[in-house]
Amino acid sequence: MHEVSLCESILQVMEQSAASQGYTRVNSVWLEIGQLSGVDLEAMRFGFEVVTRGSLADGASLEIVQIPGEAWCMKCAKTVPVKQRFDECPYCGSYQLQVTGGEELRVKELEVD
């Protein structure tokens, strides 16, 4: 639901970087989006296209790298994979999990002219 806000922030990041690095055109954008970040990828793609229209990234390709969810299981004392915040530990069934990965929302890199 807030993907358009996030796309606005991505555009701000690109515009600031363009001003400091001296480029005028972004051809590709790589994002890292964690599985637990609450972002809907289709909404993100749609928002990106709408928000970047007429900007330095108009028509740029959007490459999304999904980062899998990970948590520390306190009972097993090891890192385990999770798909959702309310998942149980796949090994012992405990809910005593601390999420350690998959919350990323990052602009990783750009291909620019």
Binding site: N27, R106, E109, V112, D113
Partner: peptide, 11 residues
């Protein structure tokens, strides 16, 4: 074309 490393949180 060139690559620009951003590594910046969207938020």
């Amino acid at each position: 074309s060139r690559m620009v490393q951003i590594e910046q949180d969207i938020l």
